[in-house]
Simulated assay, not measured.
Amino acid sequence: MRNRGSQLLILAAAALAYAFLLGPLLIVIGASFDGGSQPFFRFPPEEVSLRWYLNIPEKYWSALGLSFSIAVAAAALATLLGSLAALGIARGTVGGKGLLETYFRFPLQVPFVVTGVVFLQFYYLVADATGIDLIGTPWGFVFAHTFFCVPYAVGAVGSVITHDLDRSENAARIAGATEWRVLRRITIPALKPGLFSGFFFAFITSFGDVPVSVFLASSGTTPLPVEIFQTLQFDYDPTVLSISTLVVLISTGFVIAMQRLVGLDIVLPGSRR
């Protein structure tokens, strides 16, 4: 009886945790199907309709494409830089590895609003010195997003670099394998969980960013989160619920597809396998 009571308590706690995490998403999804013309948020919907899905403005689709492109580019660049940094920290002979780890975690310790202001001022200086204006450009967003995405890649890749990997690589070298073959057949496959996890967390962080992007956006180049933020700042738009629901469904499908295709478990940055 005591064991059964403990199990029920654990199940109840788990149900509450899932309700807390998924409840807001389910409410937004449900409210997006309310076809009424009321200028306020209503859940549950009184009139189920696809009205707001069929009337999503073109600006949201353009912003969604821009956000996706920025997130992919920033995550790829952050994963590349973070992987090199993680390998250097784990296998480098230079002292002060703890200081280096702290250095690469530093972007997460700085408030994102401060990061946005810093990059805004930095881009102004670059424009004055070179004539290249990065404000309101896709690459301007990519460089800024890469700055705060690198720590996720460093943590994720660093978590899968183990002594077993070193022994496998050394065994392959002793057997006569070239460095390229060791990298292709042993190192990269062993790092794949960390590479995937680092890319995934970097992508999600970049895709949903507002505090940094709001400083770098322009009238013609605005990521989706900033577009939604600016819209709701002045008025309530029911189509925001529709595009948000589509983003949730697309993101969920993306995660499931990647896990099935790649066959990897997500490694939390900083954890150890």
Results as ranks from 00 to 15, higher is better:
R51N: 01
W52C: 00
W52G: 00
L54D: 14
N55F: 12
I56N: 03
P57A: 10
E58H: 12
K59S: 15
S62G: 14
A63C: 09
L64V: 09
G65H: 06
G65V: 07
L66C: 14
F68C: 08
F68I: 13
S69I: 05
S69F: 14
I70A: 03
V72H: 04
V72P: 01
A73T: 14
A73E: 08
A73H: 11
A74F: 11
A75S: 08
A76V: 14
A76T: 07
L77G: 06
A78V: 11
S83N: 09
A85E: 00
L87C: 10
G88L: 02
I89F: 08
I89H: 01
A90P: 01
R91S: 11
R91N: 13
G92I: 02
T93W: 13
T93Q: 13
G95M: 10
G95A: 15
G98L: 12
L99T: 12
T102V: 12
T102I: 14
Y103A: 15
F104L: 08
F104S: 04
R105C: 08
F106W: 14
F106D: 12
F106L: 15
P107N: 05
L108V: 04
L108Q: 10
F112W: 08
T115G: 10
T115F: 08
V117S: 06
V117N: 06
V117A: 15
V118W: 02
V118I: 13
F119L: 08
L120H: 09
F122T: 13
Y123P: 02
Y123N: 03
Y124N: 14
Y124G: 07
L125C: 15
V126I: 15
A127V: 07
D128Q: 11
D128S: 12
T130N: 10
T130G: 02
T130F: 07
L134H: 04
I135T: 12
G136P: 03
G136A: 13
P138T: 11
P138A: 15
P138Q: 06
W139E: 11
W139S: 09
W139D: 04
W139A: 14
G140Q: 09
G140P: 06
V142N: 03
V142M: 12
V142E: 05
F143C: 05
F143A: 12
A144G: 10
H145T: 01
T146K: 04
T146N: 02
F148T: 04
V150R: 00
P151L: 14
Y152E: 03
Y152H: 10
A153H: 02
A153F: 01
G155W: 00
S159Y: 12
V160A: 02
V160Q: 02
V160C: 02
I161H: 01
I161P: 02
T162F: 11
L165I: 03
L165Q: 03
D166W: 00
D166K: 03
D166L: 09
R167T: 10
S168L: 13
S168V: 10
S168Q: 13
E169S: 13
E169N: 07
E169Y: 07
A172K: 09
A172G: 10
A172R: 05
A175W: 07
G176T: 13
A177E: 04
L183M: 11
L183Q: 01
R184T: 09
R185I: 00
I186C: 03
T187W: 03
T187H: 10
I188G: 07
I188L: 15
P189C: 05
P189A: 04
L191N: 01
K192H: 05
P193C: 14
